[in-house]
Amino acid sequence: MKIGELARVTGTPVETIRYYEREGLLAAPARTDGNFRIYEDTHAERLSFIRHCRSLDMSLDEIRILLRFKDAPGANCGDVNTLLDAHIVHVAARIRELRVLERQLKSLREQCPQARDAAHCGILHELSQPACPGAPISGGHVHGAHGGVRK
């Protein structure tokens, strides 16, 4: 199948497929005489695996490790368990950070309980103040809450 069909079958944008190939997560496919990529069912299966891992917010490095185990079915999966345990700890920390962010945003929202002219908007006023460490509204973001660029 060509890249467009693989994209359709897996629900993955073409550019993301190419990105995964560049990152070494997806093997480079064979090419036709016209230099078109030709993908096999194994590519679709692997891409579906990668997409499932990404839906669980796993990093590309975590996925690489899991793929190594997937490619070596006789290997002991103890390290897979360890990886998942570490990922669970990471997710729990992000949840805590996001809860702090939620409280900060709610506190910020309370600064302007009703619509008024922008010159007297409590939210805009508060966002204009220098961030104070330890203040309820830090004016910043929670580090690690966004995880960088996602593909």
Rank of each mutant, 00 (worst) to 15 (best):
C53P: 08
G122E: 04
C53I: 07
A115Q: 11
E102W: 04
A135E: 15
H143L: 12
E102H: 10
H87C: 04
E5V: 12
T16H: 04
N81Q: 14
L105N: 09
P13N: 05
H90E: 10
R37G: 09
R54V: 08
V91S: 00
I123K: 02
V9W: 06
L84A: 08
L105C: 09
R99T: 08
V100C: 07
R96K: 13
T16I: 05
C132H: 14
E15G: 01
R8G: 07
K106Q: 14
R18Y: 08
I65S: 08
C121D: 06
G139Q: 08
A119W: 05
R109W: 07
V9F: 11
T10Y: 12
G148D: 10
H52M: 07
G139A: 06
E23T: 01
N76H: 12
C77G: 02
P133F: 01
S59W: 03
A86N: 09
Q111I: 02
A28G: 11
G122P: 02
A75F: 04
H141P: 03
L25I: 08
A135H: 14
G78D: 14
A131Q: 07
L105V: 14
D41W: 05
V89A: 13
G122I: 01
A118K: 00
F69V: 03
R51E: 15
C112L: 05
A86P: 03
I123H: 02
V80Q: 00
R99K: 11
D61E: 14
A145G: 15
N35L: 12
R99F: 03
L66S: 04
M1P: 14
R116P: 03
K106S: 13
H90C: 01
E15A: 07
H146R: 11
G78T: 08
T82Y: 05
H90G: 08
S138D: 14
E97K: 09
R64V: 07
F49Q: 04
P133S: 10
D61G: 06
V89M: 03
I3L: 09
T10I: 09
R64N: 10
M1G: 15
A7D: 11
E40M: 11
G24Y: 08
Q111H: 14
K106G: 07
V80A: 12
L66K: 00
L98W: 02
D117Y: 01
F49H: 04
I50K: 03
T16M: 11
E21G: 06
H146M: 10
Q129W: 06
E45R: 13
T12E: 06
F49M: 05
D61P: 00
G78I: 02
L47F: 13
L56R: 06
T12W: 04
S48V: 14
A115R: 13
